[in-house]
Amino acid sequence: MYETNYHRASSIEDAVKLRQAAGEGKYLSGGMTLIPTMKQRLAAPTDLVDVRQIQDMKGIRVTGRTVRIGAATSHFDVASSAELAAVCPAITGLASHIGDPHVRHMGTIGGSIANNDPAADYPSAMLALDATIVTDRREIAAGDFFTGLFETALEDGELVTAITFEAPAKAGYQKFANPASRYAMTGVFVVRRDNGDIRVAVTGAGSSGVFRHKGMEAALAGNWSPDALAGVTVDASDLLSDIHADAGYRANLVKVMAKRAVAAA
């Protein structure tokens, strides 16, 4: 790892100030992606601003059906929240299968979505749940937030502080995990709301990162059942192709995971 300067922020304002004062700085949350990336010298921030211990960025609040998760809340805390499981068990289940137990103790929801790894689990949940990403300066709809591979709408120095969403009537998530890394080779998060709105978001498969599949949404709007997806075509031309799975294989996985997600919802 190249040299870096570590700073621990005590508040959101403090973090933003420290980050502004830094040269090529980065926010550090759990560090489960950033530290290994720095060890490989694929990232070399001059400064790290640790936000993991900012109290205003921690914890889960459920008010009626409105959910607010602090950005520095660990995957473990999301996975083990009974309050959250009562209104949206799909997201607690998703969190319980990220990485491994040790990674879940450190990694955070804010870090995951700010990094926007195309194979990460959370972006699909944010998009399907139509979540709002709260930052130090504004609120961004998930649909506008994830802009490409490892790319987001965040400005330089902008800090994700929380995410909020309305818990839907039904939600389900299923992934086909890479057998070594446990990242999603394809993961599909499905949501159905009381007003009939359907969202299907796919991670791990798209060549531009997480995306909604409108064809599956339309099919499920008519008939909320795994069978409704049988006739839907998934276009392989926009999907990732790599040593783990080619685009055609992923296209099939999208459909299979979507069916399983609807069945699980």
Partner: peptide
């Protein structure tokens, strides 16, 4: 274990 939870110490800074 850090504050009672298992973590990977090769992916955590001493400063953290």
């Amino acid at each position: 274990h850090m504050d009672g939870r298992s973590i990977k110490s090769c992916s955590t800074l001493a400063a953290q």
